[in-house]
Each structure stands twice: as C-alpha cells, then as structure tokens.
Nucleic acid binder design. Structure first.
Length: 424
RNA sequence: GGAGGGAUGGCCGAGCGGUCUAAGGCGCACGCCUGGAGAGCGUGUUGGGGGCAACUCCUCGCGGGUUCGAAUCCCGCUCCCUCCGCCA
C-alpha cells in the first residue's frame, strides 16, 4: 500500500521506484482515478452540505409547526443525486485502493539494482568452512541413517514432506528451544503463541494477498495456513494506535510454516531443503519510522547470533532490487554454508517493510511529541528456519563414519547428548 | 452447531429518529498554583478526506437499506460475552 500524497507530490519518483523492480509506470493511471475521485468528492460534498442544511431546516419547521412541503420537495431532488454520487465515490475509492495495494514497496536507496539473485551483494562472510579430510555427504544421505525418512513422509503426505524420528526429532525440538531462548532471554523479544490459521485480512495486511494466493494452502473453512509467523505476529498490531513509548515492540514465535510453492517444482527435490511444511522461529519488530533502519541491522544481528553460537559458517547478502520481496524495502538474507551441497543457502531473511504493511493493516502510533498518529514501520526476520538449520548442523558437523558431533550450544538442549550416531 | 445479549473516541461509559458540533469519567498535553512534587483549578484532546481559502464532508464494529434527516429503525456480515450441544 502506498502513500497517495507522496504519489501525487512526485509521480516520477513512484514510477522510478517501479522501474527498479522491473515494472511499467503506473502513476499516471492511478492519478487519473485519484483526480476523478477528488472532483467527484468536491461536488458531492456540496450536495451533502445542502441536504444537511435543508434537513435541519425541516426539523426546525416541524418543531415550530411551519409548512415544510417546499423544503421537502427541494431535498427530494437532491436525494437521488447524492445517492448516486456516494455510490460512484465508493467505486472510485475501492479502485484506487486496489491500485495502491497492487504495487510493491519502494526500495531503500542503498538497495543495489539488478534483475535477479546474481546481482545480490555479499555484505560480510562470517566463519570459515571446515576443511574435510573426506568427501562431505549431503544431509539426505546422512539423515537416512539418523532418523530421517522422506519415503515414509511421501506415504503420508506426498512429495516435499519429511518424517524425523528419534534423535533427529529431538534435535529439531532442541534447535527451536535454543533459538527461542536466545531471542527471548538475550535479545528482548517477547515469545508469542499464535494461530496457524488466519483470515484473508491478515494475509492482506502483510502483503501475501491478493497477489500471492497460489503460494498458500487454504482449508475448507476459508482460513489460510500461515506461510510464516510474520503474518500473525505483524498483524498483532493491525488496526491499533500504539503509544510511542511502547515502541519498539519485538515479538518472536516458533511455528510450522506452510507453503504450496507451486512455482518451485523441480527445484531442490532431494532431501528436506524445500518443504511444504517446516518449523521456523520468526522475529517481528514494530518501530517508529526514524528507528526502523537501525532496528533492521539489530534484527539481522539477532538472527546471525544463532549461527555464530551454532558455529555455522555463513554470509550476509543484501538482496538486489529484482530479488527483494513485494512488501520489503530492504532485505538481508543469511546464507549458511552447506558442505554437502558445496553452496551457501538461505536460512534467514530479514526485511524492513517500512510503512508498507502498516498502511495495509492500519497500524499506527501516537507520537510522544504530539500530533496526528503516524504509521509504524514493521520488520520481520527468521531467527532461524529450523529445518534448514538442522540440515546445516548435519552437513557441517558430520564425521566420516556418518555420525554427527553437535555444537556445544545445543548440548544442554539435548540432555547432554553431544553426538548423533547412525542407527543402522 | 443452537438460543440469547452486546460492539460508541487512547481507555471506561451515557445516548434508543433532528438540539450528537457524542454527556460524564479516566488517561494524556499545556497553563495556573507550589521551594519542588502531588492534590486542586483552568484549557485542550476521535480519526480520515475534500477545498487556494472561507469552509465542508465522512467517521459510533463492517456493508447495505428505510427516512427530508440514522449512533439511534430494518437486513446481511464479522467479532465478543452468556447458556446449551459437541469436543482435546
């Protein structure tokens, strides 16, 4: 959702922002609807004022017992005109809102331009990939001997699901608990347990609807399964006017995430890298406009801390214009090193959505200095994707015999177990 | 799922066809008072639009309707509460 006033003041900037995303200009067509709306509103308003005045006079006449028939006749003429005008105004308003809602967020100035992921910029590389004395195996090979079954998952649910059992099920839970503890105890995030089924409005608020319905699962009641806890966590402030003193709000939740990913067919078909269902610890911040950029850096650091403590090598990537998501103004991806694949893979995505989502969900705050409510800024990041973290642990800490040594940070969460052993 | 009751400004709450430009209270802001703070007193305080402006329109959960005129009456929807049913 965009600020109409900004668009009016500088339509060229709006179109340039679209161009950075590889989209055709749209300012002129939006402004055409806007000026039609404003012209109509001005004339309609005169009729409404007239009607209100006459109605007051009728009330006065009735009270004093005077003859009101002349007034009634005049107001009767206005009635249809006002009604038609109101109807037309509603249509224009709806069209305008849907136009404003269908364009992606404006990118931050420091986002590099580029058509796709190839133009993303590596910001920093942290940790050194381990030197293996043997050929490191991919996680699906390691997992097969540790309690991971894609075959059994297929029996239950089809492709792109996984069954983890025994020590791997336990490891998944340990990772989630470790991440939640880190974010709540050390980084000040408030843990929230949220619904996994949400209504249309929530998904509109964060920007998944109406454009990306095909990426989502929908159930027979009409609810949608959340694709990320960003949706319920961010919508927590929908429709509210917060006090500036309450900001920033920082929320975290560990939830399953459900993605139909229709467009991903054929990619990452091996193992559990790309699933219809996976656990993720999500971070969401709600801030003032002045502090969101700093909060974005902070949030990214909070997510990175997980990787550091798990001793996993990673790099931070600033997404380019063509790779940045619909609602985001600026996104850092955290990519973890996967020796089994020999690549860095996304394990977290931290986005500053500025006021884009706040406008869609009418989330505002009252400035401490006084004045009208302003839209908050919203940010979200993974802290981290649990399934992919599990993959990263298996691949980075594997031994030649198929066992996996566990990073020290996880041992307390595993009841002292510091090694996964093949079960065969 | 069934039957009732409800939704009013940042919060609580009155209001049941025109005087609502929404009582009253709380909170908040500013001022007076005070050595300072508190109490007290006074003033202000829903939000969103249009218009160069004067000014004006919309906004009482959301959407329709009735009426010259709707917070108030009618219909639909959403959510909350109570009871019943079902249920981990």
């Amino acid at each position: 959702m965009h600020d109409l006033r900004w668009l009016r003041d500088d339509p060229g900037a709006f179109d340039r922002a679209l161009a950075r995303r590889g989209l055709p200009p749209a300012a002129a067509s939006i402004l055409a609807v806007d000026s039609e709306r404003r012209a109509l509103e001005t004339t309609l308003q005169e009729r409404q004022a007239e009607r209100n005045r006459l109605s007051r006079e009728i009330g006065e006449a009735k009270r004093t017992g005077a003859d009101a028939s002349a007034l009634l006749a005049r107001v009767a003429e206005l009635k249809d005109e006002v009604k038609a005008g109101e109807e037309r105004l509603r249509e224009l308003q709806a069209r305008l809102e849907s136009l404003l809602a269908s364009h992606p967020n404006r990118l931050a100035d420091d986002v590099p331009d580029g058509p796709d992921a190839s133009a993303n910029r590596v910001v920093r590389v942290v940790g050194t990939p381990r030197r293996f004395a043997f050929e490191p195996k991919p996680h699906e090979v390691l997992g097969a001997r540790l309690g991971m079954s894609l075959e059994r998952a297929a029996k239950l649910s089809g492709a792109r699901f996984v069954v983890l059992s025994g020590q791997l099920a336990r490891l998944e839970r340990a990772l989630a608990a470790f991440m939640l503890d880190l974010q709540t105890k050390e980084h000040g995030y408030r843990e929230v347990s949220v619904p996994l089924l949400v209504r249309d409005e929530a998904l509109f608020g964060t920007g998944q609807l109406p454009k990306f319905a095909e990426d989502l699962f929908r159930v027979s009641s009409g609810h949608w399964l959340i694709p990320t806890a960003e949706v319920p966590l961010t919508n927590l402030v929908a429709g509210e006017i917060l006090a500036e003193a309450d900001l920033p709000l920082r929320f975290t939740a560990c939830t399953p995430c459900f993605r139909s990913e229709a467009g991903a067919a054929g990619k990452d078909t091996k193992g559990m890298l790309r699933q219809h269902q996976f656990w993720k610890v999500e971070l969401v911040s709600v801030t003032t406009p002045e502090t969101s950029a700093a909060e974005h850096e902070r949030m990214t650091k909070c997510a990175e801390e997980c990787l550091k403590r798990l001793e996993l090598p990673y790099r931070v990537v600033l997404l380019c214009s063509g790779d940045t998501g619909f609602a985001s103004a600026k996104t850092y991806d955290l990519e973890v090193w996967l020796p089994g694949q020999g690549v860095y893979r996304e394990i977290s995505s931290c986005s500053n959505c500025t006021d884009f989502q706040a406008r869609r969900m009418q989330a505002r705050y009252r400035p401490a200095a006084g004045g009208s409510p302003r839209f908050v800024h919203t940010l979200n990041g993974s802290g981290l994707a649990v399934g992919r973290t599990l993959i990263a642990v298996l691949e980075n800490f594997q031994e030649e015999d198929g066992s996996v040594r566990l990073p020290g940070a996880l041992v307390p969460y595993m009841d002292g177990v510091d090694r996964l052993e093949p079960e065969d």
